[in-house]
Design a binder for these strands. Sequence first.
DNA 1: CGACTCATTGAACAGGTGTTTAATGTATTG
DNA 2: CAATACATTAAACACCTGTTCAATGAGTCG
Lengths: 215, 215
Amino acid sequence: MRSTRQADDLSTAARIRDAAIVRFGRDGFGAGLRAVAADAGVTAGLVVHHFGSKDGLRAACDAHVLGVIRSEKLKVTTRSLNAITQLADVEQYAPYALYSLRSMQAGGELGRQFVDRMAEDALEYLEVGVQAGTIKPSRDPVARARYLTYHYTGYLLLWMSLYGGPVEIEQFRTELRRLADEVTLPALELFTDGLLTDRTMLDDYVEYVNAPPKP
Amino acid sequence: MRSTRQADDLSTAARIRDAAIVRFGRDGFGAGLRAVAADAGVTAGLVVHHFGSKDGLRAACDAHVLGVIRSEKLKVTTRSLNAITQLADVEQYAPYALYSLRSMQAGGELGRQFVDRMAEDALEYLEVGVQAGTIKPSRDPVARARYLTYHYTGYLLLWMSLYGGPVEIEQFRTELRRLADEVTLPALELFTDGLLTDRTMLDDYVEYVNAPPKP
DNA sequence: CGACTCATTGAACAGGTGTTTAATGTATTG
DNA sequence: CAATACATTAAACACCTGTTCAATGAGTCG
């Protein structure tokens, strides 16, 4: 039947890829090919037959996740300032969020692209806030967007590294909410009032970088 | 000669442990026992003879690093608010800093303890600032200290995950300085002026959490 | 139908891992 | 000096990894 191929479920290759995204997201990229194959109900040999190698499989996963992120709705992921509650919001995309985190943890190209993309979206979002008058302007908006993005992403990565070995998706979301609760007050305080009582450090610094010493 | 044992260098076990700290810090805990053994100029068998197992070796490394941190000067590590320049300052302790980062990345007990300790020190330091009038008080000082610590540590961890595969100690320090430069302006801006132009979000949140018990 | 292509499997392979074991040398002790 | 305990090594072991290979099966096309 041709219906077996396309209608029954997904194509076998796609099923393997999806299983790999979930498995890698849960256990990290140290997970074995045989585990991925078992999740997809196939054999390890078939995995490399379809994807060439484990790296090929990972590349396919990267491409797919990046495609999903780019395609449409996951722009929501970076629309909020709080990168933690962000991810908790989109329930159906939790596996992709987990996979992306693992990607950052393992340090692949997808990880870098993902973070850069989040920084771009954050910049956009911050600009809107500045225009609307709700967010203060910055002397270097790009640097600020990167700074905030790296911080929130790093917070999440650190938490996953410290407390999440193999991460179940359900546990992932509930823990995210707990983290968000823990973070909200200090974050709002910092965002509203800052931390320092006087501005000499900042003023001194901008004066320092604007005064070209000796070229 | 008994002098061979203690004076010539360190004891063999200590030499292995130190080599392991450096190697694990550079390559992560995936590094093989044979690599560690070769660094120490011994055999893999001897490593497990002394430490029982690879986990035993790692436990010994953890204990030693934690001991060094506790013992004395590494309190400096957490004295500055900026956790990045922190580590760049203490040159001789860079291997310990790297090892600790790997520990956080791998998620062992040492990683958790290290972060918790940094949070405690940050709390102490922030309190001093509050007393001195240079830092604004917080409604929840403990949460704020944890928040700031996790953020800066996470920033560092994210950077290492994304860009640092095997990390050379020299490269580690120079990169830390570059990161510090990149971060200084946005951080100072945020710490001085905050991010939001009005305080309704904060006030609403505080009112919300205080609503039930507070008359 | 026959030939051909592709998906799929199970077994085998080569390489790496942590660990074990037996042997050897080298101190320290009785 | 002899005996004993320890440090150390090289080789082997069992296991797990990604990958390869030959065989089997099912679907497609001429």
